[in-house]
Computed example of a mutant assay.
Amino acid sequence: MRLPNLSSTNAISAKIRELDQKRFEMDRQISSGQKLRFPEDDGMRLGRVIRLETQKGQLTQYQRNASYAEEFLNAGQLNLDKLTELNQRAQEIARSAGSSLNGPAMETYGHEINQLIEEALNRINATHRKQALFGGTKLKPKFASTDVMLGKRQTKTFSFSEVGQAWADGKRRIGFGDEMIFSLNGREYVFQSKVDGLETDEVAARVRDLINNQSDVLSDSQSYETSQYKAFVRGSGSSSLAYDPAVDLAAAVSSNGELVVTGAVGKTYDA
């Protein structure tokens, strides 16, 4: 019987150890679920894993961006739908106002139109996750009035129930030389009577026109003068009261003859 030499025995033992090491490695991979443990295990495979992880992160970000874009578009579409409804309601009011309506009805429609305008401003200034829906890349849009708050307007009402004398026809009138001064937003709106028996309705109408037709430059503001009265705008007598053009005063005469003055949304003024 021929006995193997020592080199053959060593080779067989080394092969057995190599196979045992591979078996151990396979057991480890099966138990851990990972084929690679160190970068040097397989450089090419590890590079591919890194690329796949990078692509996975990119796809995840794309998915987030797509979800955000969908939310953004849905929010924009919702506001556009609401703006369409507001426009339709405004058209209905315009058609109704074309017919013969009494004073209270016109005043009611006027208030509703103001509310529609404010609601429209709210819609076009809407944001989603602090990003303006209709402001491009700007965080704060600048459509008319930013951050409009419905109903947040300062309103001052001037009643003429105690002004002048009440005549037999129920109307109140002022006399010759009477002067009425309305101090608003750092300016004075002055009405001077040149005759006796001038109706307070005329006073309210002229002061309304002074307010609505005034200019930011005081000298360019409208004035009115007839044989019966003189109406004009002048600066305030107090140096502490300054004119603020952003207040944007608007005046109207109510159905009962009161002068109603309203400022811009979110603005206050002295009165």
Score class of each variant (00 low, 15 high):
G170S: 09
D169S: 07
E225L: 09
F38D: 00
R64N: 09
K82V: 15
E85M: 10
Q61Y: 14
V247K: 00
E40Y: 07
A132E: 00
S161H: 11
L83K: 06
S254F: 09
E118Q: 08
N185I: 11
S239Q: 05
T226P: 00
S240A: 13
Y62V: 13
E107P: 04
K138W: 06
M1C: 12
W167N: 06
M44F: 15
G237V: 15
S255M: 07
N5D: 15
S7L: 15
G263A: 09
Q115T: 12
D196S: 12
I117Y: 03
F72S: 00
E18S: 09
F72V: 05
S99P: 02
R89I: 04
Q77P: 04
F176Y: 14
L73Y: 11
V260I: 13
S219Y: 09
V190G: 01
G33L: 06
Y109R: 03
K22F: 15
D270G: 08
R89G: 00
Q63D: 03
G135M: 01
S67F: 15
K156A: 12
F72A: 03
N256K: 08
T146M: 00
Q115E: 10
A11I: 10
I117F: 01
E40P: 01
T137V: 11
Y68P: 02
E199C: 10
F232Q: 07
Q91R: 10
G170R: 08
D20T: 14
N125R: 02
H128P: 01
L36G: 01
Q228R: 11
E70T: 12
K142F: 15
Q58W: 10
N5A: 12
V195Y: 07
S99C: 00
Q131H: 02
D27F: 09
G33W: 06
N87E: 13
V260W: 02
F134G: 00
M26I: 15
E258N: 05
E258Y: 05
I113C: 02
A166F: 14
D201Q: 06
D196V: 11
R172F: 01
N256R: 07
G98V: 12
L78Y: 05
Q131S: 00
R208E: 15
N212A: 11
F191I: 11
D41M: 06
E25M: 04
E112Y: 10
N79Q: 05
A66D: 02
G266P: 01
A271D: 06
V190E: 02
Q63G: 02
A264N: 04
L52G: 01
M1H: 11
R89L: 02
L210V: 10
R45P: 08
F72L: 02
E92C: 05
A105V: 12
T54D: 01
L139M: 07
E179P: 09
E179G: 10
V207N: 01
S145Q: 11
E40L: 04
T108R: 09
S99N: 03
T262F: 08
E25G: 01
D209E: 09
R37I: 15
R234D: 10
R51G: 12
D81R: 09
E258Q: 06
S96P: 03
M106G: 02
G164N: 04
A11E: 04
F182A: 08
L184N: 07
K152E: 13
T268R: 08
A251M: 05
N125W: 04
L101H: 01
S159L: 10
L86V: 14
Q34T: 13
S238K: 09
A231G: 00
E225R: 08
S239H: 05
A90C: 04
A246K: 10
